[in-house]
């Protein structure tokens, strides 16, 4: 594009105004981001000054006795987000391919808006659904127990203090776990991942699709040869965006997990926590210093989410589907 001759007139007054408006909007967004970061740094500084590097290595949260750190809640956040991604990505890929490649017309529009509608469900509703329905009514804990029984030899799925052969043991040891919180968060981030993937898949160039069919490919063969490689960037980017959202998810996690401040590596076992859920839990009763400690935890989460989201946008921008298609 750069080397071609100029085909448009130099911008006039109204164009310049328009451009200035857009530029201002862009700067304001960046400025707000910066203020959030600076605010967290400013408020969290007094706690960070006390805790220093121990803030990253302490597994406890008692800010008033100066014994606090995010060594338990930060890995907890990543575990919940990890389970969420494992649940959401296969669902999202299937859904996106189904909508963009198999459905047409009314069904396509309806299912697209149904998935988008899922993104509009408030997170407190997902939390209630997870707590009362998933854990309470249908007893997802049975699935946890089954997984723990047969996959318990993998450290991640181990459950301590549970005897599967004890008929009197109740299922409480499997409740309020990383696994259940992760499933709910996964269903919450699935729509956004699905939307990004669907966009990427639908832009796969028609010429290449026709080419694949012309060479005798079945529909699945065409998807494997054209759509998926073309949409790889969108798939990775959508997953990263979902991961960013999953790490920041608060209320649903707050309602489901049994908040502990010691790292719980067993995802099927009772007890889990995330940075955002901890902030929501502790905010109400925090002292001045406790608030500062929470702000510091928020800062770490903010930085982590920022990194994940920037990485996501970089991946999307570099991929073929992020650039102009040559259909």
């Amino acid at each position: 594009m750069a080397g071609e001759r100029r085909t448009t007139a130099l911008p006039g007054g109204i164009d310049r105004l328009y451009r200035a408006g857009l530029r201002t909007a862009g700067v304001i967004v960046l400025a707000i981001m910066a203020t959030v970061g600076l605010f967290l740094l400013d408020r969290g500084f007094s706690a960070l000054a006390v805790a220093k590097w121990r803030f990253l290595s302490t597994q406890n949260w008692q800010p008033d006795s100066h014994n606090f750190g995010i060594a338990a809640v930060l890995p907890g956040t990543l575990l919940i987000a990890g389970v969420a991604i494992v649940v959401a990505v296969p669902l999202a890929i299937g859904m996106a391919l189904f909508i963009s490649e198999y459905l047409t017309g009314w069904w396509q529009r309806t299912l697209t808006s149904a998935v988008d509608l899922m993104a509009a469900v408030p997170s407190v509703v997902f939390g209630l659904w997870g707590f009362h329905f998933l854990q309470g009514d249908i007893g997802i804990t049975d699935l946890s127990a089954w997984l723990a029984r047969y996959l318990g030899w993998i450290p991640l799925f181990a459950v301590t203090g549970a005897d599967p052969d004890d008929p009197l043991a109740s299922r409480t040891v499997y409740t309020s776990s990383t696994f259940i919180a992760g499933i709910v968060v996964g269903l919450m981030v699935m729509p956004i991942i699905c939307a990004v993937m669907r966009e990427a898949f639908s832009q796969a160039p028609a010429g290449e699709r026709e080419g694949a069919y012309a060479l005798g490919a079945t529909r699945w063969g065409m998807i494997g040869a054209v759509v998926l490689p073309f949409g790889r960037g969108g798939m990775i980017g959508g997953t990263m965006l979902g991961l960013g959202r999953a790490m920041g998810e608060t209320i649903a996690v707050y309602m489901i997990v049994a908040a502990v401040y010691r790292f719980q590596p067993h995802i099927l076992q009772n007890g889990a926590n995330s940075v955002s859920a901890m902030i929501a839990l502790q905010y109400g009763s925090a002292s001045q210093f406790g608030l500062s400690a929470l702000m510091a935890a928020g800062l770490v989460l903010f930085l982590l989410t920022l990194v994940v989201n920037f990485a996501a946008s970089a991946v999307i921008a570099r991929s073929r589907s992020g650039q102009m298609s040559e259909g």
Partner: peptide, 19 residues
């Protein structure tokens, strides 16, 4: 098992499987 708020603890105890 720590749970948030009175509705959280009473809701948890009242769940069928949480004998």
């Amino acid at each position: 098992v720590p749970q948030a708020q009175s509705v959280g603890v009473s809701g948890y105890v009242s769940q069928e499987g949480n004998d």
